[in-house]
Design a protein around this nucleic acid. Sequence first.
DNA 1: CTGCATCCCTGTTGATACTG
DNA 2: CAGTATCAACAGGGATGCAG
Lengths: 136, 136
Amino acid sequence: MERGHIHVPAQCGRIAAILSRIGDKWTVLVVESLGNGPLRFNELRRRIGGISQRMLTLTLRAAERDGFVTRTVFPTIPPRVDYELTPLGRSLREPLHRLGDWALENVETIEESRRRFDGEAEKQAAAPRPQRAVGA
Amino acid sequence: MERGHIHVPAQCGRIAAILSRIGDKWTVLVVESLGNGPLRFNELRRRIGGISQRMLTLTLRAAERDGFVTRTVFPTIPPRVDYELTPLGRSLREPLHRLGDWALENVETIEESRRRFDGEAEKQAAAPRPQRAVGA
DNA sequence: CTGCATCCCTGTTGATACTG
DNA sequence: CAGTATCAACAGGGATGCAG
């Protein structure tokens, strides 16, 4: 409790839940892609790249449910649907960018740490405690 | 591109990857729980609550691999292992708290949005477009 | 164009039991 | 106490086909 922060497990659980939602592999991409203004379904899809139609639909529905985006249907032929960030969704971009900046700043450190860790693990596997011969 | 931010999909993918890692349901809890100082395995486990031994092990190993925590083994009997945040892990707490504050601030809005959304969905299900009789 | 339903595969999670 | 191994259950996610 060094600072004024809470540290109550229940609150942490809530944070974890939020992170799980927005960190579910596509929501971040959607929020960022919509950061420049509203987009149609397939524009969004092309913009993100690598997302299946199904996942985009599910992600957008979840985001709409959480109040991050609005879904506007134009009853034209062919149909047209615009997705746009709500104020809530836009407010999410700031803390998200914080974390994004942190990630970009530290991604190399993290990847190096991973390489080192994996290298050590390999060496450990190559020399599995010489003493203590299994059958002896 | 309204501000100085990047918005390159590749970068967003990295952010999403980081979010997926740290938002993997337990890492946040671990980081927060270790925020007050080093803890032993089972202390940490009790502190978090609801995490299985296996998941804690996996989460800690991943966190160690990424360089968020250090693992210190005391070769005593019974064995004792301390886990502690690295500077990198501690630096993660700040942007994490940002997002945490955002989550706490907006959790009610989000939950209300969900309730409303689910309520609407229920009404829609109850009135499945009166016109357009299936067989007619 | 948008998006729902279905099938299916995979990764992730958790319970249990066993080792050092 | 700390950690691993194995197995079973579940949800996430992709491909395809159909509908408005």
